[in-house]
Structures are given as structure tokens and as C-alpha cells.
């Protein structure tokens, strides 16, 4: 579901998706510090592999997305990470079309960034105590927002919103639960082992003292 194939969406939707993807990637790359590039690559690889884990649910078949985890770990840099992973999935496995790449990036990266920003706020206000539950909620929220966004995009291309949203949401309930636990566990591990990985200070604020 999350990977929409070519020929389903209408032209204005495709254009908006491409514009959002380009803008998000440009902003994500501008804020990206060179020291964090390996981390972005690793999470891009996790995202690339996660879509291969799939299981049948009811009449359809779903797979892990893990955009919540990518968003919590990377913040705005989730855009380039997800773009690269989706491009490779489209070229190598035929997951989703190349023309709809922008829309697919938008559907998965915008929820990821929202999750990342919300996680940062919770972590700053509530401290480390709330970080693990917040990560779990971010894992659920990432999938939920992606499912809603897919349904919305389909609705804007002339489908009925409610049936599509129902189909997509019901099929993704198990994915949400799994990803909630997985994200909480992964972020919990990172906080225990190397908490500074999650400190996203934008590149310019690090550069300033050096000047």
C-alpha cells in the first residue's frame, strides 16, 4: 500500500508530491551536518530493508515501514534517507513507481519528520523518562499518518476517501503495534548506549563557535 504504483494518481497530486519531496530534501540536506551522514545512511538502509518484512492481513498484504524510527533518529534528515531508500526499492524491486516517487516520499517522510519534531519536544520538556514511551508512540504515529496520507492522496485522485482509508488503516493496525514496540526498543537501546546520537543540533549552530 504504502508504495503506490505508477498510473494510479492524478497529475496535480504527483506535482505536489514531487515539490514537497524536493523541498524537504533540500531543507534536510541544508540542516545536515557532515558528521551525521553515516547515521543517515544507516537509517536509510534500515528503511530499505524494513519494507521487505511483510505479512498477510485480511484480504491484503502489508509490510513494515519504520518511518517513525527514521524520523525520531534523524529529524529533517529523514527526507533524503527515505528518498534514497525508496528510489532503490523502486528500481530494484519494483516497489512503487518512479513517477510517483515524490508522492511516496511525501507520504512517508512528512510523518517521519512530524514524529521526529514531536519526539524532540517531548524529550526536552519531559526528560529522558518519557523518551522511550514517546518513541513507541512515534512508531505508531508514523504508520498512522502514512496510512491516512495514502488514503488522502488516493481520494484526491478520484477514489472514495473512506473505503480506501478504512482498508489501509485496518490492514496497518498490526504494523502500527509492531512498529510501536520496535521503535521504543530501538530508541531505548540508543538512549542507554549512545544518547548523543539523538541530539539534533543544526549544522550552523555547531559551526558558529569555530568561526
Amino acid at each position: 500500500m504504502a508504495h503506490i504504483p505508477d498510473g494510479v494518481l492524478s497529475l496535480p497530486v504527483l506535482a505536489v508530491g514531487a515539490a514537497v519531496a524536493v523541498a524537504g530534501c533540500a531543507y534536510g540536506l541544508r540542516r545536515l551536518d557532515a558528521e551525521r551522514i553515516p547515521q543517515v545512511a544507516v537509517l536509510s538502509a534500515v528503511f530499505f530493508v524494513a519494507s521487505l518484512v511483510h505479512f498477510p492481513v485480511g484480504p491484503s498484504s502489508v509490510h513494515l515501514i519504520l518511518n517513525g524510527l527514521v524520523g525520531v533518529a534523524l529529524g529533517w534528515a529523514a527526507f533524503p534517507a527515505i528518498l534514497i531508500a525508496l528510489l532503490l526499492q523502486a528500481v530494484m524491486f519494483g516497489f512503487g513507481g518512479l513517477v510517483v516517487l515524490g508522492v511516496n516520499v511525501m507520504n512517508m517522510a512528512v510523518p517521519a519528520v512530524i514524529c521526529g519534531l514531536a519526539f524532540d519536544i517531548v524529550r526536552q520538556r519531559g526528560g529522558e523518562r518519557w523518551a522511550v514511551p514517546a518513541a513507541g508512540i512515534a512508531g505508531v504515529l508514523g504508520v498512522l499518518l502514512t496510512a491516512l496520507s495514502v488514503a488522502l492522496v488516493l481520494a484526491l485522485s478520484g477514489r472514495e476517501f473512506l473505503p480506501a482509508a478504512k482498508l489501509v488503516l485496518v490492514a496497518h493496525l498490526p504494523v502500527m503495534i509492531i512498529e510501536g514496540f520496535f521503535t521504543a526498543a530501538a530508541i531505548g537501546l540508543v538512549i542507554r548506549v549512545k544518547p548523543d546520537v539523538l541530539d539534533r543540533t543544526p549544522a550552523f549552530s555547531i559551526e558558529e563557535p569555530a568561526r
Binding site: P38, A41, I84, A85
Partner: peptide
């Protein structure tokens, strides 16, 4: 190959 691409691009 995909993982290799990601590492190379990184």
C-alpha cells in the same frame, strides 16, 4: 546491492 548503493552514496 541496494545496501551497497546506500553505503556508497553515504
Amino acid at each position: 546491492g541496494g545496501l551497497g548503493y546506500i553505503i556508497g552514496l553515504g
